[in-house]
Design a protein around this nucleic acid. Structure first.
Length: 321
DNA sequence: GTCCAGAGCTATGTAGCGCG
DNA sequence: CGCGCTACATAGCTCTGGAC
C-alpha cells in the first residue's frame, strides 16, 4: 500500500515534469509494468486528479494548470472549505489531532496556487498587446494595494479603506468585504460588500487611497460566482460607446508617449493627423482625458457627443464674451 | 493471547487485441 | 510497428474462526 502511494505520487511528479510522458516510460521510471501504470491512472482518476492521455502515442498530461496540489475546486467546495475557518475554534475539541495543521497546509497551498495563477493571467493579459501596458506606461493603473487586496480576497479578510470618487470629488472611508478581484480592460476591479450600506459595489483598484487589511474574516452573503461577475462586466462592455477621434500632429508625440486608452484602430491622415477608433465604457472619464488636448483633438463620431462638445464650447464662449 | 489453516482480497505480470 | 488497453493467471497479503 505504501509502495503504491509512493508510486502514485511519483507518477504525478513525472507527468508534471514531463507532460506527454508515455505509459512505458512511467513503468520504467517506477520499476513496474505498464499494466500497473494503467491501474494507477485509474486510481488517480478516481481521486479526481485531472490527468488525461492525449491519444495514441501522445502520452499523459494534466488537464488545465494542475500542479502537485490538486485544488481543482468548484465554488461550492471552496466555500465549504473556507467556512470551516469560521467555526474552527468551536469544534476544535471534536477534531482529530493534527487536523488544524493539515487544514492550514491545504489552504496555504491553495492560496499559493491561486496567487500564481493570478500572476500568470496578468502576464498573459499584457502579452496580448505588447508595448502598450497601461500599468507601466501611464503609472495610473498600478495600485500598490493590488497584492494586499488580492491576498485579502483569498483569505476572506475585511479591509479598511479610503476610496476616492472623482465624479463627486469625494473620499469615502469604511470597511469592505473583498469578494473578488477582476481584471477588466487592463484594470483591476474589486467586487465587495460595503459595510456602511450592506450593498455590493465594484471598486476600481487605483482609486483606493489607503488600504489596511484587518484580522477579521467575513462570510460571503452573496454567492455570485466569478463567471457571473465577469458576465456582469461583459454586459457593461456592451453598453460602451464607439468613438472616432482626430488628433492633430502636434499632440501625437504626447499621445504616443503616455496614454491609457486602447484604440481598436489608428489611421494616419494625409495632413499628418491621426484618426483613432476606440470603444469606451467610462465616457465621462474619457471626455475628461480628451479635454487635455483642447482644440488638437476632435470628436468625429458619435454625432451626439460631437454636438454635446459644440454646445459646451458655445457656453464657454458665452462666459468669455 | 497465540497459533494455524483456509478463504478471500489485492496488487501485479503476461499475453494478446485493436487501432492509427 | 508502437501504443493504449484488457482478460486472465498468480503470488502474496489480510482476515476469520477454531483449537489450545
Amino acid at each position: 500500500m505504501t509502495d503504491r502511494l509512493i508510486r502514485l505520487m511519483r507518477i504525478i511528479t513525472l507527468v508534471q515534469a514531463k507532460p506527454g510522458i508515455l505509459a512505458r516510460e512511467l513503468a520504467e521510471r517506477c520499476s513496474t509494468s505498464e499494466r500497473t501504470i494503467y491501474r494507477d491512472m485509474e486510481a488517480l482518476s478516481a481521486m479526481h486528479i485531472p490527468i488525461t492521455h492525449l491519444g495514441y502515442g501522445k502520452g499523459y498530461q494534466f488537464i488545465g494548470r494542475f500542479a502537485l496540489y490538486p485544488f481543482d475546486w468548484t465554488e461550492d467546495e471552496l466555500e465549504a472549505f473556507t467556512t470551516v475557518a469560521q467555526v474552527m475554534n468551536q469544534i476544535k475539541p471534536l477534531l482529530p489531532e493534527g487536523f488544524e495543521g493539515a487544514y492550514e497546509k491545504v489552504m496555504a497551498a491553495y492560496h499559493k496556487q491561486k496567487v500564481d495563477r493570478m500572476e500568470t493571467e496578468l502576464q498573459e493579459g499584457e502579452h496580448h498587446q505588447p508595448g502598450k501596458t497601461v500599468s507601466t506606461q501611464s503609472g495610473e493603473e498600478q495600485s500598490e494595494y493590488l497584492m494586499p487586496i488580492l491576498l485579502a480576497t483569498l483569505s476572506q479578510q475585511i479591509i479598511q479603506a479610503e476610496y476616492y470618487i472623482p465624479e463627486r470629488n469625494e473620499l469615502l472611508y469604511g470597511k469592505i468585504d473583498p469578494y473578488l478581484l477582476i481584471p477588466w480592460q487592463r484594470r483591476f476591479y474589486l467586487v465587495g460588500r460595503n459595510h456602511n450600506t450592506g450593498e455590493m459595489y465594484t471598486y476600481r483598484l487605483n482609486r483606493f487611497e489607503r488600504v489596511v487589511v484587518l484580522d477579521d474574516v467575513f462570510i460571503k452573503v452573496h454567492t455570485h460566482t466569478q463567471q457571473e461577475w465577469q458576465n456582469y462586466f461583459r454586459g457593461k462592455e456592451e453598453e460602451s460607446v464607439a468613438f472616432k477621434i482626430r488628433l492633430s500632429s502636434a499632440v501625437i508625440p504626447k499621445y504616443k508617449e503616455k496614454t491609457f486608452i486602447t484604440p481598436i484602430a489608428e489611421t494616419a491622415a494625409t495632413d499628418g493627423s491621426i484618426i483613432i477608433d476606440l470603444t469606451i465604457s467610462d465616457v465621462r472619464e474619457f471626455l475628461s482625458w480628451l479635454s487635455q488636448y483642447g482644440s488638437e483633438a476632435e470628436i468625429l463620431e458619435p454625432v451626439q457627443y460631437r454636438e454635446m462638445m459644440k454646445h459646451q464650447l458655445k457656453k464657454w464662449l458665452a462666459v468669455y464674451g
